[in-house]
Computed example of a mutant assay.
Amino acid sequence: MTKWKLTLEYNGGGFCGWQSQPEKCGVQDALETAIFKIDGVETRVSVAGRTDAGVHALGQVASFNAQKDWVDFRLLEALNAHLRNLGAVSVTKAETMPDDFDARFSAKSREYIYIIQNRRAFLTVNKGLAWRVPMPLDVEKMHKGAQLLVGNHDFSTFRDAECQAKSPIKTLDIFDIKRVKTPYGEQIHCYLKAQSFLHRQVRSMVGTLVEVGRGAWTLDDLVAALDAKDRTKCGQVSPPDGLYLSAVNY
């Protein structure tokens, strides 16, 4: 057997999230089906981050043990030949790894980007790929608010009620927010990096910072919400459309 590390990208709009489901609607289901078709055995893959329904990935990482002997190019081509019929997911890189490598437990940090389209007009070309916020947003104030969340905190306020993490205490390494010119027009990009995140932590923080950006919350309100360690004090939770798992670092 050979341990393989797969880098994946996918559009989460057509999936019920990463995790395998009885109705076989998860990204995991598509990948494991493709592996079975080419490797001949049922396999459970390990993954760096279990994304929710509608969340996208540019640099998701999965690992598995292959029964057959493959070279990287042939494995990538064989998997993608089946994945193209199983949803909007593809393998962009395949690498052999030591036997003790695990996509989840070997990861040192994870990076996310959240994209906001700050305009009145409805989205067309990038519908489902960004969160349209029609009211004006003060991005500088949002960035200042994001810096108040950087560091080691109890993030209970920004933790989903169904989160299974043992502790709400996490260290947020980077949370930058800025306006960026793109082919889709000017967007607001939120960049986050941490060793790990709580369930829906990113969407909860971004949604709350939009409250700050539109003037409904002050920075003091944000600090009070964090200090409360109370989920009911969270602002709105942003939709999954604009969230991307962009990279996993090892």
Rank of each mutant, 00 (worst) to 15 (best):
C234P: 02
A225V: 00
L75F: 12
N118I: 00
C163V: 05
D176V: 12
C190P: 01
A194C: 11
V248A: 04
A66H: 03
L243C: 08
T43M: 02
R214Q: 13
V223A: 15
K193F: 06
I113W: 01
A146S: 12
I35K: 09
P136Y: 09
E140T: 13
R74A: 15
Y10S: 03
V139T: 12
L149F: 10
D72M: 12
V150N: 04
R44H: 12
R119E: 05
G235A: 06
A247W: 10
Y184C: 00
R44L: 05
D173Y: 12
D227C: 02
L86P: 02
E211D: 13
K127L: 14
S196Q: 08
D173M: 10
I116E: 00
V47T: 12
W4R: 09
T51E: 03
N11H: 13
T96S: 13
D221C: 11
V61F: 05
V248Q: 03
T232Q: 11
P98L: 08
L79F: 11
N11K: 14
L245A: 10
L83D: 05
I174P: 01
W4M: 07
P239T: 09
Y112K: 05
Q19A: 15
V61S: 03
R179E: 15
L83C: 07
G145N: 11
T171G: 00
A165E: 07
C163G: 07
L149P: 01
L75N: 00
M97E: 12
V45K: 00
V150Y: 03
D241Q: 14
R74D: 15
A66M: 04
A107Q: 07
S106M: 06
A57D: 01
L31S: 08
L6A: 09
G151M: 05
L172W: 00
E186T: 12
L137S: 06
L83E: 03
Q187H: 06
S246I: 15
T51L: 06
I177L: 07
L123Q: 11
G13D: 04
E140H: 10
K233S: 15
L129W: 06
M135H: 05
D138Q: 06
G145K: 04
A247M: 07
Q164F: 13
V202C: 06
V210S: 01
N11E: 05
V150M: 08
A81T: 09
L209P: 04
W217T: 07
G40H: 02
R179D: 12
K93E: 15
T182D: 04
S196D: 14
T182L: 03
Y112E: 05
L123Y: 02
P134G: 04
